[in-house]
Design a protein around this nucleic acid. Structure first.
Lengths: 195, 195
DNA sequence: GCAAGAAAGTTTACACTGTTAACATGACTT
DNA sequence: AAGTCATGTTAACAGTGTAAACTTTCTTGC
């Protein structure tokens, strides 16, 4: 708190005029991280078809994770480790909303015949876990990749999962050709972003 | 440190006779978490075939995550958040060793025709991310499942991934029948463990 | 235009933290 | 028996989150 106050050009107790406690400040940060996350996700609603909204959701997730690594980490901190008792209900509600958003995109994709028929919630959890796991180990530097390499790997790994959860027709329609094209596209994007 | 000392029936400065600093104590805990993890993993070498060793590795990972949730969390803490500068090289070496173990099991499975031909490291990373992601969101209570449900879901979700990374022959040989049998088995195991 | 009060800051103080220095004590070595 | 070493103690220091009391500055109603 003292360090934060100094960086604001103020003494520590002044902060308590605006926030009840250190805990409340941290809650605010977590809330901001969730709001930003929601903005990224909701951008996927611009997609014109279930398939586009589904894939845009994945891309939005990746963009958020790479453009806001600290927010991303905040989203996944165990409250106990940050010295917090528990997150306020308002915040965990945002987590649920984000989860529901993904479930909705999955259900839409199932109905459109892109994903196999089945439990949308379970599939959403699988996708979520896979994506989060990738980002999590990348952020800890355990993947030993540049960001561009990771973007490519994220897509490649997601395709492997897609071959398990995608409908037979969809998987067949996306042969190696399509996959390679997508990889090239990401490679170009990553190259431009790296300039 | 004071709390730890009290729980040992000793005053705080006594700890400094055995550990240079709080940081060194935490390093020790992380080291212990890794050693325990390694024991679980290496148990999978008892398997009699590549397939058995591969699947035992997955089960060992899940058992470790569920039987030692705090150690598991320790393994995935960002050092900065725990107030640590950086992990000692000895510890990150253990992380690499665990990663290599999984790569070896994957390579073996590829050679045995269980997994699709391809980059073993990439496949290993995909499996790792998927498993870690599942455990990570389960441990934070975001899955809203009992442990028994989670064990079942973990297996189910892993099968979805297997359909993407498994070889065509292997996937065909494991039809729904086999999958259901495996689910039943885990259900029984979980039931027994829950008594 | 000015007193009243709210908003936002300050200083001081307290209990708690990791850590060090100085000192005590019991157990081995020689 | 003397000396050293391992292991503990107490007292103290700087740094932390936070509360209380006091000051300043801005807004607002008459």
């Amino acid at each position: 708190m003292r360090k934060l106050a100094r960086s604001l050009g103020v003494t520590a107790p002044a902060l308590y005029r605006h926030y009840e406690s250190r805990e409340k400040v941290l809650h605010e940060v977590v809330g901001e991280a969730y709001r930003t996350f929601a903005q990224y996700l909701y951008g996927a609603l611009e997609g014109q078809s279930p398939e586009e909204r589904f894939s845009m959701t994945g891309r939005a997730y990746l963009r958020y994770a790479l453009e806001h690594p600290q927010y991303y980490e905040v989203l996944h901190i165990s409250p106990a480790l940050a010295g917090l008792e528990e997150l306020p209900e308002e915040v965990s509600a945002q987590a649920c909303a984000a989860g529901q958003f993904l479930v909705d995109r999955v259900r839409e994709a199932i109905d459109a015949g892109i994903l196999k028929q089945g439990d949308a919630e379970a599939v959403a959890k699988t996708i979520w876990a896979h994506s989060h796991g990738l980002v999590s180990i990348y952020h800890r530097g355990l993947l030993r990749m540049t960001e561009a390499e990771f973007r490519r790997f994220f897509l490649e790994s997601s395709w492997q999962l897609m071959w398990g959860i995608g409908s037979d027709e969809f998987v067949r329609s996306r042969d190696l050709e399509a996959k390679e094209a997508a990889l090239r596209e990401v490679g170009i994007e990553a190259g431009v972003a790296g300039e």
